[in-house]
Design a protein around this nucleic acid. Structure first.
Length: 841
RNA sequence: GCCCGGGUGGCGGAAUUGGCAGACGCGGAGGUCUCAAAAACCUCUGGCCGAAAGGUCGUGCGGGUUCGAUUCCCGCCCCGGGCACCA
């Protein structure tokens, strides 16, 4: 009698054996090729959810597969342990964030171990450990040395619920906080920045070096970086009397070819010049009204483009460098201070926003670039000066076309990246009134946070010396534990923390009390895994040289910009510091889909959470792991379905029974060359080939389907050959199934391998099964015979049959003849191994 | 508005290079075993017509290319996501 499949005893047994054997700890092995398989740094929220199970099951299959393929595989885990939920929990329950966080880590680690993931636990990092965050402070100081740290005052995003500022990347959707979804506000504050914009061009260009990333993610990053080619143009400012002065205001434009159509000039409401130009004039009141209205607009309204365009004339003019024309300067809410120079040359015939503004305020709209088929082209043919002051259009035209009313540039091609655009910029450049320019949408990364549970920024404010970095030999700046979070305290409430002396002049000084964005912690953890216990340096470059870059990174699409962009930035700086030779951190990226129930994401508030622990308790970790991979391709969202999990449990039970029965009561050496045995052997080879290829392209669902097919074929064989079965073949199939399923159901496979099949050593150290494509190929194939595009017959023929033989056999089929009756065969298409298609009429 | 995904049986999904649409699983129906049930095993399971053989329709919709289209091209519809006053 074979033992029943009882997952719990098996799983917990092997988890402790693997632990004791150190099965998953790795070191650099120069004799073997390496793979670095990594899943995104989890936040220790306590309970694991199905999203974790999916994310880490994918990584575990990939890691185990590469190990069996002979690679030296690094597969680590750790915790992104700083952050607000710990503080919020503390405020609610009175538990210190550290206590809450470490308790959650222990709970989550236990859950991960119960799932049987093959982590090298000896490399674990927790970002709230001083051994980890001290190196984050070290990185901050190095960035500072390299001129990549800046403290400046500017309008910033403030989340009223999280009570802290946010980086631009952390404001998502309709102007809401990425974490709590509250609407963010704008505040003018002095904050710390990492100058990620120094790397804008490289961050954009190197996306092309990442063929292993989803196109979608690369597009999102490229859009976020937002490179625009164009020109800077200097406009001379006129005084109150309208006379040109020495002062200029520079604008960025992507359309210098439309400069002849500029009929007004705009400043952002926040532009510093606005006050200066209008203070004490008759225009002051009107301009103030626009500035005040803009200030009242929420980020949502401002960003949505739906706010009504408001404007006020400042009473002043600038001179258009191409035609010497005086152009009125207005203030408008649709000009953003954060982009370009905060000033815009308005060309209403070529820009829809300027067009709407011009129509509203009665400003002229002279055409300057018209489409080749526009009747205006003929009307204005050859006219270099301005004849037509308004267009008969109901919207602006921004496509390619021909320049009109444009002085010496008239008749040149206009539009983005046009000859006209280059010619005008060149002309300006020669006269020193403009230049080619590239502008990025990406802004510097705001990294300071006004919260307690984070990595303290190692800086000191000295009234004499200004901003002074904490000397490297005084690191770490330890986050003090004696803080009463329930009162909402931060480091700024603790004089014993912030009262210090200046490292330069030794005078009394104030320590910085902001902490770093937690995204700084997750920007380099994958480097630290390579040398996690190093207490003399952030890491040994030789170890990083062996493991980095990460070969396969797996995580959620929600980090398409945030974490993935920051990590790319950190890696490039580390490369420039000589700490790594990698230019990019993650060679291949898999973004897994969400796990849903009833069409919605699982969440406590919806009450539709299916707890992984409950499923493990009922069906075991192996069934859950295999099933979550079987349900859908990994990058797609999937809908939870419990009956399916039961089906997977049944499949594992069938594998268990098959391997047990074949091993314990083997059939004799039967009809080895019987057709049924040949078919089973062929199926074994075919399935090994398919499972291998499927894993490499992340087709875990189809890989499992193929294993089911092999088991079905094995069952067919048992029935077909009865007692005359080939016991050697069946044993081979049983071993193959055990090896193939090992990455998915590691505990069951181990029990079958060591205890049932009686092998020594772990199945997870075994080489991946080999297959022979020649044996996988069928010697006979069934092909379809079509008459006029419809299948009218089937034909079983030797797989290597020639075209003539196939044609003859096809035409000879009775049913084919019936359908050909009265018709003349015009053409016969033969696809060897596939089909014969007969065209008749 | 712009840019990506996606739309295939009752359900999840498969079809890797243009070659038999629906693999595999779930669910359903019938059967074997059993006093009975569960479990396990077997058979069937896209719609319509038909007793069957077979026929016919069928991969969001409409066209096209092709001997042949889920796959390629053109034009739409719907769903999901991202970006959006970026000059």
């Amino acid at each position: 009698m074979t033992r029943p499949y009882e997952p719990h005893a098996i799983e917990e047994k092997w988890q402790s054996v693997w632990d004791a054997e150190g099965l998953y700890s790795v070191t650099e092995d120069p004799d073997r090729p390496k793979k670095y398989v990594l899943e995104m740094f989890p936040y220790p929220s306590g309970d694991i959810h199905m999203g974790h199970v999916r994310n880490y099951s994918i990584g575990d299959v990939v890691a185990r597969y590469f190990t069996m393929r002979g690679y030296s595989v690094l597969h680590p885990i750790g915790w992104d342990a700083f952050g607000l939920p710990a503080e919020n929990a503390a405020i609610k329950s009175g538990t210190h964030p550290a206590k809450w966080t470490y308790a959650n880590i222990d709970k989550q680690a236990a859950s991960f171990k119960r799932m049987g993931f093959s982590y090298d636990w000896g490399r674990t990092v927790k970002s709230c450990d001083v051994d980890y965050y001290r190196w984050g402070q070290w990185v901050f100081l190095k960035f500072w040395e390299r001129g990549l740290v800046e403290r400046k005052k500017s309008p910033v995003n403030w989340c009223p619920s999280c009570k802290t500022v946010l980086a631009n990347e952390q404001v998502i959707g309709d102007g809401v906080c990425w974490r709590c979804k509250s609407t963010v506000e704008k505040r003018d504050l002095e904050q710390w920045y990492f100058k990620i914009t120094e790397y804008s061009q490289e961050l954009l260009d190197d996306l092309d070096t990442l063929p292993g990333w989803p196109e979608r993610v690369k597009t999102m990053q490229a859009n976020w970086i937002g490179r625009s080619e164009g020109a800077e143009v200097d406009f001379t400012l006129c005084d109150e009397a309208g006379q040109p002065t020495e002062r200029t205001i520079t604008v960025f434009t992507t359309r210098p070819d439309t400069l002849f159509g500029c009929t007004f000039f705009l400043l952002a409401p926040e532009h510093p010049l606005v006050r200066e130009l209008t203070a004490g004039t008759e225009h002051d009141a009107g301009v103030r009204a626009v500035v005040a209205a803009a200030a009242r607009e929420t980020a949502v309204e401002r960003a949505s483009g739906e706010a009504e365009k408001l404007g006020a004339f400042t009473g002043r003019y600038v001179v258009n460098p191409v035609n010497g024309e005086k152009v009125p300067v207005w203030v408008s809410n649709y000009v953003l201070m954060e982009y370009g120079t905060g000033a815009v040359m308005a060309v209403p015939s070529g820009d829809q926003r300027d067009f709407e503004f011009a129509r509203k305020y009665g400003l002229p709209i002279p055409p300057v670039v018209v489409a080749a088929d526009d009747p205006l082209l003929e009307e204005l043919e050859g006219m270099r000066g301005r004849h037509l002051l308004d267009v008969p259009w109901d919207q602006a035209y921004d496509g390619p076309g021909v320049m009109v009313q444009s002085g010496d540039f008239t008749r040149l091609p206009g539009g983005k990246n046009s000859e006209g655009m280059r010619a005008v910029t060149e002309w300006l450049s020669v006269r020193g009134q403009g230049r080619f320019s590239i502008n990025f949408r990406l802004r510097d990364w705001l990294i300071s946070r006004q919260r307690y549970w984070g990595n303290p920024i190692p800086a000191i404010h000295c009234p004499e010396c200004g901003l002074v970095p904490v000397p490297a030999d005084q690191l770490p700046v330890v986050l003090p534990m004696e803080v009463d979070i329930t009162k909402g305290e931060t480091l700024a409430d603790h004089p014993e923390f912030y009262e210090t002396s200046c490292p330069k002049c030794a005078g009394p000084a104030r320590r910085e009390t902001d902490t770093m964005d937690t995204f700084t912690c997750s920007s380099w953890y994958y480097f630290r895994y390579c040398d996690a216990r190093n207490d003399g340096a952030i890491w040994d470059p030789a170890k990083v040289g062996y493991w980095m870059p990460v070969d396969q990174y797996i995580g959620g699409i929600e980090h398409a910009i945030l974490h993935l962009l920051y990590s790319r930035f950190f890696t490039k700086v580390f490369r420039d510091m000589g700490l790594t030779s990698a230019a990019e951190p993650f060679t291949n990226l898999l973004t897994q889909g969400m796990v849903k129930k009833d069409g919605e994401t699982m969440s406590k508030s919806r009450g539709n959470v299916v707890a992984p622990e409950d499923m493990v308790a009922r069906f075991g970790a192996d069934a859950l792991r295999a099933f979550i991979l079987f349900m859908a391709p990994p990058d797609k969202d999937l809908e939870w379905n419990q009956e399916g999990l039961e089906g997977m449990f049944r499949f594992l039970t069938r594998v268990w029974r098959y391997v047990s029965e074949v091993t314990e009561a083997p059939a004799g050496g039967g009809a080895i060359d019987a057709a049924a045995a040949r078919a089973l052997r062929r199926e074994r080879h075919r399935v090994v080939g398919k499972v291998s290829a499927d894993i490499e392209r992340f087709g875990f669902n189809t890989a499992l389907s193929a294993m089911m097919e092999l088991l079905n074929a094995a069952g067919d064989y048992r029935r077909a050959d009865g007692d005359a079965r080939d016991g050697v073949l069946e044993r081979e199939v049983a071993e193959t199934l055990t090896l193939l399923i090992a990455p998915y159901a590691p505990h069951m496979a181990e029990e079958l391998w060591r205890e049932v099949l009686g092998k020594t050593g772990s199945v997870h150290r075994e080489p991946w099964p080999a297959f022979d494509p020649a044996l996988a190929a069928a010697d006979e194939v069934e092909i379809a015979v079509q008459v006029n595009g419809k299948v009218r017959g089937k034909l079983t023929i030797a797989a290597d049959a020639g075209e003539d033989a196939m044609r003859e056999a096809a035409l000879g089929l009775e049913r084919v003849q019936e359908h050909l009756a009265g018709l003349a065969v015009r053409k016969v298409v033969v696809v060897p191994g596939k089909l014969v298609s007969i065209v008749a009429g």
